[in-house]
Simulated assay, not measured.
Amino acid sequence: MDSTTTDTATGPPPAPMGRRERKKAATRQAIADAALRLFLERGYDDVGIREIADAADVSTTTLFKHFPVKEALVFDEDADQETRLVAAVRERPEGQSIPIALREHALTTRLAAADGDARFTAFTNLVAGTPALRDYAQNMWLRHTAALARAIAEESGLAPGDPACTALAHFALQAPRAAYAHDDPRQAVSRAFELLEHGWSALTQIEA
């Protein structure tokens, strides 16, 4: 389970998926939905791969074609999340700073998915209470940080591997997660990104 979003990028719409691609996507979604339902009902460690395959009406071979490891069943939109993060930077409106673009992405995707959603709360509790999922999530966020930092560097004209780009990517990804515990998560995220915006503006002015 990951946050859903509405694609606001300009340009021609993507070509519609063919029948085979639609079938594969539907099968993948059915597997992920069955897995999450079972995990939330009984706990991650008490559910086996064969049970998930049976619940989704697929073979275990088919399941592993879509999800090579058990942990990936919980983070079924991992690659899509990274794509959306990078697009938020690369496709931001002209004149919009990178921190503000990332703030808008956080408010319209990650926090929007959490607003009043008991299932999202159950999902976060599942991950927090399962060591294997916590480790997988940490590695996933490290990958996203690296991809986002590269995009930030390229869009800013800074050197690849510039620590400032890595720091901005890291804090931009962590801000929504840290805000969940606040009474007003959206205000907390906005405040966090105000700090990032001021620091980034000062840095880029110096670099210029």
Score class of each variant (00 low, 15 high):
A188G: 09
G157N: 10
Q187W: 05
A9V: 13
G48S: 15
A26I: 04
K70D: 04
H105P: 00
E82Y: 00
A34G: 14
R22V: 04
A179D: 06
D80V: 15
L195E: 09
V189K: 06
R50L: 11
D183P: 01
V58D: 08
E91P: 00
T8C: 02
F123T: 08
L111M: 08
D33H: 09
S201L: 10
Y44E: 01
V74D: 03
H144W: 11
Q187I: 12
Q187L: 15
L107G: 05
L173E: 06
Y44K: 04
A179K: 03
F123K: 01
L107W: 03
H105F: 11
Q138A: 13
P176T: 10
R19L: 10
K70M: 02
R19Q: 10
A132P: 03
N125I: 00
A164W: 11
A167V: 13
R22H: 07
L203C: 00
T62A: 14
G11E: 02
D80G: 09
A167S: 15
D57A: 14
F123I: 02
P176H: 03
T121F: 00
F120P: 00
V86H: 04
W200S: 03
P163W: 05
H198F: 10
R42C: 07
A112G: 00
T27H: 01
T60C: 11
E194Y: 04
A79N: 08
G11R: 04
L36G: 01
I98P: 03
R143Q: 11
P131H: 05
A151Q: 06
R20A: 15
T108W: 00
S3D: 08
T6D: 02
L40E: 05
M17T: 05
E82D: 09
P185I: 04
L195M: 10
R42V: 06
D33T: 15
L168D: 10
Y180V: 14
Y180A: 13
T130L: 02
R50H: 11
R119N: 00
D46Q: 14
E21A: 15
A172Y: 05
N125D: 12
H144F: 09
A53K: 11
A159V: 15
L142N: 12
A167K: 13
T124I: 07
T166A: 14
T60L: 08
P14K: 04
K65N: 15
P185L: 02
G95N: 06
H182F: 14
L168N: 10
A79D: 15
E155C: 13
T109M: 02
A88L: 05
A114P: 00
P14D: 07
L126M: 02
T6S: 07
T121G: 08
D76M: 06
A202Q: 08
A55N: 09
I31F: 07
T108C: 01
L142G: 12
Y180K: 10
G11D: 03
R19W: 06
G161K: 07
Q29K: 10
A34N: 03
L63I: 11
T61H: 12
E155S: 15
Q81N: 09
R119Q: 09
I31E: 02
A15S: 13
D7G: 07
E41D: 14
P68V: 08
P160I: 07
A167D: 15
L203F: 14
S201Y: 00
